[in-house]
Nucleic acid binder design. Structure first.
Length: 301
DNA sequence: CGCCTTTGACCCGCGC
DNA sequence: GCGCGGGTCAAAGGCG
């Protein structure tokens, strides 16, 4: 029931999450790593169009808004993650190849809100919940979500660097939102490349991981200074990337804060993001990638 | 009573 | 053209 569901969600807000994987995708360009996941959700685009045609009120629906999509992976024992929004379940299917049912939720915070989410357990690790948000909220986020979103966005301040943009010259995601405190760059997994040097060719490698540095702690229960693993830019310099990321990933608040943050950002600037992604493949890769083995989390299969 | 979940049916796109 | 699979609809029933 709804009450039980909410209780589960709340319960799982407090514990049980060990990490997450989060990605902001433009379905127009799909990396190899994302093929399977995107295959799982790709038909949504057409279905959303169909929904519009079938008379579902969707005052802000547009191709740009429809393409806003955020995928969040988090350890969660409950049926869903509580991200601060209200969701109504409108369907459930057992997808081929995954015995775990996929649940479909619609945002009910505001009537006609086009945002939907799909929730499915990871086949390879049943403790991981894959939540895919799609669409743009046409309403202010609830207090809880807004608080989490503002916390995460202001403190973590995600900057998306895509395959063709020079992070130093191109207005970034972070600059859109006027959160200048963070430097984020794609880091190659094996080579030592200074993110400030685009000539090194690190931009555009889909295998590269997005990492962020924050000028101060995120307000979570653990120190959450996000550091590049190899540029030694840390003002603290006393924690390895793995330790830092692990600390972040271990904090359940972070999971939901990030989810809410991205959702909020999309709500605010969905068109900006989408228009930017029309020429680029925006991908916010997992922050937990480096600790995925440890935590049992995996990147997109 | 209102809102929710459940669940079978239906619709549509895609591959063959 | 047909079958399959994913996504959505909507009726039915439950709960607070």
């Amino acid at each position: 029931m709804a009450t039980n569901q909410k209780e589960d969600d709340n319960k799982n807000n407090g514990d049980g999450e060990l990490g997450l994987s989060l990605s902001l995708k433009s379905p127009q360009v799909i990396n190899e790593d994302d093929k399977e996941e995107m295959a799982n959700f790709a038909p949504v685009q057409n279905k959303l169009q169909r929904s519009e045609l079938s008379g579902v009120p969707n005052p802000i629906a547009s191709p740009l808004n429809r393409k806003a999509r955020v995928s969040v992976r988090a350890r969660c024992q409950g049926a869903t993650m509580n991200d601060g929004c209200q969701w109504r379940k409108y369907g459930q299917k057992i997808a081929k190849g995954n015995p775990c049912p996929r649940a479909y939720y619609r945002c009910t915070v505001a009537p006609g809100c086009p945002v939907r989410k799909q929730v499915q357990r990871c086949l390879e690790d049943m403790s991981i919940l894959i939540t895919t948000y799609e669409g743009t909220h046409n309403h202010p986020l609830p207090v809880g979500a807004t608080a989490m979103a503002s916390t995460a966005s202001a403190e973590a301040s995600f900057m998306l660097v895509d395959s063709s943009i020079n992070p130093l010259t191109q207005p970034s995601f972070a600059s859109y939102y006027k959160y200048p405190s963070t430097i984020m760059s794609r880091q190659p997994s094996s080579t030592n490349i200074n993110p400030s040097d685009p000539s090194k060719g690190n931009i555009g490698d889909p295998s590269q991981k997005l990492v962020a540095t924050s000028s101060h702690e995120m307000g979570f229960s653990r120190s959450s200074s996000w550091m590049s693993s190899n540029n030694n830019a840390s003002p603290r310099g006393d924690k390895s990337l793995a330790e830092n990321v692990s600390a972040i990933a271990l904090d359940p608040k972070f999971t939901f804060a990030v989810a809410a943050a991205i959702s909020s950002l999309i709500a605010k600037e969905g068109e900006n993001i989408a228009s930017s992604s029309s020429t680029n493949n925006w991908i916010l890769e997992s922050l937990s990638a480096n600790t995925s083995d440890k935590k049992g989390l995996r990147q997109s299969p």
